[in-house]
């Protein structure tokens, strides 16, 4: 049976991510958890969720999954929240940390950029504005609400990589798509029906990649 493998590096609550993929894949896939590099070899698709700080996330990933970079480039990959941010070149959280440099651009502090009246973290439902016609957005209206929780935002340099943007005083990159990679700042596993639709679209798209 094919595996959807969710990476566990001990920093985030995987419950909803696992359950949402289970629900959507409808028993066609086995949803399992990877704690070592070995576990990733067997994966048909890789999901990297994440909460918390970028620095400790990068540290744990490089220690526990030394060949993660290679796997991300070679298998259908879905990054969520921190799993989206670490794809960029650098995050400026905690005085800065180098990330995977798969997507050109950086991750910056909201509180330095936006009006004092707006609260940080950017938490709650906000509009995701699609920038690309792509199978990943199938059956999701061009502008739709998704659920966000984050204090740092990503700016992708290349327009080619940007799948959607969102406005919180400033426009930021809310999802990217490149080759076999889709990753988003928001939480599809907490975004009700369009979130589940997105996960379902990802699975369908992944199947077409082979």
């Amino acid at each position: 049976m094919k595996n959807i493998t969710v990476i566990d590096y001990g920093m985030s609550n995987l419950h909803s991510v696992i359950k949402s993929f289970q629900k959507v894949s409808n028993k066609k896939y086995k949803v399992c958890v990877a704690t070592t590099n070995e576990d990733l070899k067997k994966a048909s698709m890789i999901v990297l969720p994440g909460q918390g700080a970028a620095k400790s996330c990068m540290q744990k990933l490089t220690t526990n999954f030394p060949r993660l970079h290679e796997h991300i480039l070679n298998k259908p990959f879905f990054g969520i929240c921190l799993g989206f941010q670490i794809l960029f070149e650098r995050s400026y959280e905690d005085n800065g940390v180098d990330c995977l440099s798969i997507i050109k651009g950086s991750v910056n502090d909201f509180s330095k950029q936006i009006s004092q009246d707006l609260k940080v973290p950017h938490m709650g439902w906000n509009n995701v504005e699609q920038k690309k016609d792509h199978a990943i957005w199938s059956n999701i209206p061009r502008t739709s609400f998704f659920y966000f929780v984050h204090s740092y935002y990503a700016s992708a340099e290349s327009k080619e990589d940007i799948s959607s943007t969102t406005t919180y005083d400033i426009d930021f990159t809310s999802s990217v798509i490149k080759d076999n990679i889709f990753a988003c700042q928001f939480h599809p596993e907490k975004s009700s029906k369009y979130g589940l639709q997105l996960i379902s679209n990802f699975i369908t798209w992944s199947e077409s990649l082979k």
Partner: peptide, 8 residues
């Protein structure tokens, strides 16, 4: 633009 007001 801000974030949507929530109803809980």
């Amino acid at each position: 633009m801000s974030v949507a007001k929530r109803i809980i």
